[in-house]
């Protein structure tokens, strides 16, 4: 469990794509607690790592703030490609 009180939300990055802890807390403050929607409003899990590094952290923040059990937080669908791949590679250019 993360102790959210001990860290600065504006300086704590949830993922490598510039999403801060504050971004997530702001959406939670609006009463939105569904990871599927938090993902799309903050863009956590929508960058290069496809959520591999950040989505579980985001889920833990939700769990810590709302008291929801981690088991109840469904992780968003993983999408292809598993790793980002260049357009020319697929187009055979």
């Amino acid at each position: 469990m993360i102790n959210l009180d001990k860290i600065d939300p504006e300086k704590t990055f949830i993922c490598g794509c510039d999403v801060t802890l504050k971004d997530i807390l702001d959406v939670l403050d609006e009463g939105i607690t569904d990871l599927e929607i938090i993902k799309r409003l903050t863009r956590v899990g929508m960058g290069f790592c496809q959520g591999r590094y950040c989505i579980v952290t985001a889920a833990q923040v939700i769990s810590a703030k709302t008291g929801k059990d981690m088991k109840e937080i469904k992780l968003p669908t993983s999408r292809i490609p598993i790793k980002p791949v260049k357009i020319k590679v697929i187009a055979n250019e």
Partner: peptide, 9 residues
């Protein structure tokens, strides 16, 4: 666009 990486489909 050919040098861009696709993130998701």
């Amino acid at each position: 666009l050919k040098d861009l990486r696709i993130l998701r489909v």
